[in-house]
Amino acid sequence: MTDAPKPLGGNGSGPKSAYFLSHADQEIERRTLAVLVDNEPGVLARVVGLFSGRGYNIDSLTVAEVDASQHRSRITIVTQGTAHILEQIEAQLLRIVPVAEVIDITNSKTGIERELALVKVAGTGEKRVEALRIAEIFRAHVIDTTNESFIFEVTGASEKLTQFVDLMRPLGLVEVSRTGVLSIKRGKEKG
């Protein structure tokens, strides 16, 4: 039964196997996922560990308990990947035992996304006045002030916050703290 083996390796394009599975030619999409979980020890580590273990991206992450009586926490994750990867992310998240729901806020096109930033700006004279004037335009609140500094609280879409921070940079930006994206669906329906 010694048959000459058939030619292997294909036509010069090189062999491909699951190890070379590439979705590079597919479009990368950004997704905001709300992950509702049982607030038990280690649950955040499980969710985050899934992303690092399987090589998925996390652009932003927020978490807090949202229903104390049911010990339910809501984790909002902004991620990106190809459609295939994003489908896997959702399926893999649901495999985690304490994960109850995964809600795709982006995909629905009806989601609202908000972020909050605390922005410290130090300066005097004209720059200080200019900072205050821009803050007004962005509807930022001053939540702490000294003769030489302000702390602004600003909320809105992430792009708006980034824009605000960029404008503050030449006016004496000291530091920024951001919450990451929070999201919820529009309308009366849950999730």
């Binding site: 039964m1 010694t2 083996p5 058939k6 292997l8 390796g9 062999p15 196997s17």
Partner: peptide, 11 residues
């Protein structure tokens, strides 16, 4: 590795 189902080495 890297070959298709109909590219088996038999002998």
């Amino acid at each position: 590795s890297g070959s298709a189902h109909n590219q088996m080495i038999l002998g």
